[in-house]
Each structure stands twice: as C-alpha cells, then as structure tokens.
C-alpha cells in the first residue's frame, strides 16, 4: 500500500537500537507519562520514607480531641483529625498501605491470571473453553461486589482484602494474555521454532510469552490504580482492615464523611491522595501503551 510504503520509508530510518529501548525512548518523550512518573515517585517516596518524613507517629495523639479539629496551616501542616492525630503523618503512612495493596493485589491477580491465560491460550480446545467460561462468569460480577463477598467470606484482615481485590483482577489478566498468545501462537517465528524442533514448554516460555507480555504490563499498571481505589472503597463501605488504627485513605474518608462541612480537609485530603496516586498510575499505563503499541511488528 502506498501510504504504508511512505510510512515504512519513514520508519526504516528511525533505526531503533532495541525494541524495549525504543519503547523507552518514546515513553521518555511523552510529557503526560512523565507527569505520571512524577506522581508515582511522590507516592513511592512518601511510602518508603514515611517514618522519616512524617512529623509524628500516625496514631500518636498530638493535639486535642475535638469534634471540630484544626484545619491545615497553624501548627500542623495539614491539620489534625478528631482524635488529635496529625493528618500529614497519617497520609504519609497511608501511602505505604496503598502502595502495598496495589502491588500485592496486582501481583496475586497477575500470577494467577497469567497461569490461566497461558494455559488457555496455549493448550486451547476444551481446556480453553472451560477456563474462559469461568473467567467470563467472574467478569460478569461487578468487581467491587465480588470483593465485598470475598471479604465477608474470608474476614477483614489486610491480607484477606488484598487477596480479595487480587482475585477480582484475575480474569482481566487471563483474558489479555490468552488473546495476546492466540495472536502470537500462529506467527511465523513460532512456526519456525516448531520446525526446528523446539519443545512445547520452551516454545511457550521462550518465544510466545516474551512477545505477548507487553499489553499485560500496561494493564498491570492500570489495574494497580483500580486496586487502590477498590481497597479504599471497601474501607469506605466499612469493610476495610479490621484494625481501626490503620491510616487507610478510604477509611479516613469514611470516618469523617459526616464532617464534610465542619472539617472538609479530613475528607478531601485522603481523597486527593487517592486521586494523585491513581492518576499517576493511569498516566504511566497510557504512556506505556503508546510507547509499546506503535506498529513495531510491521
């Protein structure tokens, strides 16, 4: 095709030095993605150095108990809550929780999802049909509802919650990897590997999956944002971690929902923290998608 030829002429000159490297170059030039990286860095720094950055312990009472606690400014940068605890410190420690929740639940969902997706996509046949019907079933239940059900069933520990949220993401990854594998399975280079006698497992792990994994990485970033929101939502609904002293952002919002008028900062600040971290992850995810997608396999 002529237009494609013109573009190919264009592409051939952009000699990339490696597929990942090239994707990285494109990512680096995407301002939105860089903003995302910035936001995520803020979250990571907050989480890692919470102990050093926070002026106080998250559960330490540093001010008076009050139904009308002090707002930002004054002696405490972001004000106090009704139990006299420093909001900034609680937010910083909350970042730890959120990041942990995001990473762990996605790791759980990803590992289970990848196994199912790889098996379904590679083996095919009735195995594929069986796995994918179950995944469809899981997808048809709203994920928050499913998480609520699982938490009710398993109990309200932090681990249980991460597991519950992780499970809701399994079908997303399973589907994505399966689709991606199906697209690669018939590719000529796979056929070429088969024709030199590469055995099945090596074919899957050494050839097919490395070429199918890019969209999954993108999705993992985006899902991490969803997981953070979901855990916050669970907490907000009163299904959060049983330990009331944990500075979970969703829980902080829920605890103070009725004080929106008198002490808006107690609701808005945790909400803002959630927005920042999920937006950061979403921007990175979109950036990655754009960086990896452009038709490299022409």
């Amino acid at each position: 095709m002529s237009v494609a030829e013109a573009q190919a002429a264009e592409l051939s000159l952009e000699r990339p030095s490696g597929l990942w490297r090239d994707a990285f170059d494109r990512f680096r030039r995407n301002p939105a993605a860089l903003v995302g990286v910035g936001l995520l860095l803020v979250l990571i720094i907050a989480a890692v150095f919470a102990a050093q950055l926070a002026p106080h312990e998250p559960n330490q009472q540093v001010g008076p108990l009050s139904t009308n606690p002090a707002g930002p400014g004054g002696g405490f940068t972001l004000g106090l809550d009704e139990q006299g605890r420093d909001v900034l410190s609680r937010l910083l420690f909350g970042a730890r929780l959120s990041l942990l929740v995001g990473v762990v639940s996605v790791a759980i969902g990803l590992s289970i999802g990848l196994v199912f997706g790889a098996v379904a996509g590679y083996i095919g046949g009735w195995v594929d049909t069986a796995i994918m019907r179950v995944m469809d079933l899981l997808l048809s239940v709203p994920s928050l509802l499913m998480a609520i059900g699982l938490v009710t069933l398993l109990g309200r520990g932090m681990v249980q919650i991460m597991f519950a949220v992780g499970v809701t993401t399994v079908p997303i990854f399973a589907r994505l990897l399966r689709g991606s594998i199906l697209g690669q399975r018939e590719a000529d280079y796979v056929l070429a590997a088969r024709s030199v006698g590469v055995p099945g497992r090596r074919l899957l792990l050494g050839h097919i999956i490395p070429n199918s994994i890019a969209p999954v990485i993108v999705q993992a970033t985006l899902t991490m944002a969803t997981a953070i929101i979901e855990v916050a939502a669970l907490s907000f609904l009163g299904l959060g971690p049983g330990d009331p002293s944990l500075p979970e952002w969703g829980k902080m919002m829920a605890d103070n929902a009725n004080r929106l008028e008198s002490a808006a900062h107690l609701v808005l600040l945790p909400g803002f923290a959630i927005v920042i971290s999920t937006m950061g992850l979403n921007l990175i995810g979109d950036g990655l998608r754009e960086a990896i997608d452009p038709k490299l396999r022409s």
Binding site: V196, V198, R297, S298
Partner: peptide, 26 residues
C-alpha cells in the same frame, strides 16, 4: 523450512546469534 515473510519469521526479541543457535541447542 524457509518462510516468506522476513519480518514475522524471526522472533523480534532475540538476537541473531540466539536465533541461529537455537536449533543446535534444542
């Protein structure tokens, strides 16, 4: 086998040495 499409018949994530060597390893 020798394939038609010189673009899709080589695994883009492996270097040439790796591609040519694989049959020997296998």
């Amino acid at each position: 086998m020798v394939f038609q499409d010189p673009y899709s018949s080589l695994n883009p994530r492996r270097n040439v040495g790796n591609i040519v060597e694989e049959p020997l390893n296998v």
